Simulated scan of single mutants.
Amino acid sequence: MSSAVSDKRLNLSAGLLSCAVALTLVVAKLWAFQQTGSLAIAATLADSAMDLMMSLAALAAIAYAAKPADDDHNFGHTSAEDLAALGQSLIILASSAVIGTAAVWRLWQGDPSLPENEGAGIAIVTLSIVLTLGLVVWQRRVAARTNNPVVKADSLHYLGDLIPNVGAILALWASSALGLAQVDSVVALGAALLLAFGALRIGKEAWDALMDRQADPEMIAGIAAIAQGFDGVHGFHDLKTRRAGSRVFVNLHIELDGDQSLHRAHAIGAALRRAILHTYPGADVLIHKDPVGVQKHPDDPSV
Rank of each mutant, 00 (worst) to 15 (best):
S89N: 04
I91N: 03
I92V: 15
S95N: 06
G100F: 12
A102Y: 08
A102K: 14
A102W: 12
R106S: 12
W108P: 00
P112L: 13
S113T: 14
L114N: 03
P115H: 11
P115T: 09
N117Y: 07
N117Q: 13
N117V: 09
N117D: 11
E118T: 15
E118Y: 10
I122C: 04
S128W: 15
I129N: 08
L131R: 07
L133F: 15
L135C: 01
R141Y: 09
V142I: 15
A144P: 00
R145V: 08
T146A: 04
S155H: 04
S155P: 00
L156F: 04
L156C: 03
L156D: 01
L156T: 07
H157Q: 13
L159I: 07
L159N: 06
G160S: 09
I163R: 06
P164I: 13
A171S: 12
S175P: 01
G179D: 09
A181Q: 08
D184M: 10
D184F: 10
L189D: 01
A192H: 11
L193P: 00
L194T: 06
L195P: 00
L195T: 00
A196P: 00
A196N: 06
A196S: 12
G198H: 09
G198S: 15
A199H: 01
A199Q: 01
L200R: 09
R201E: 11
R201P: 00
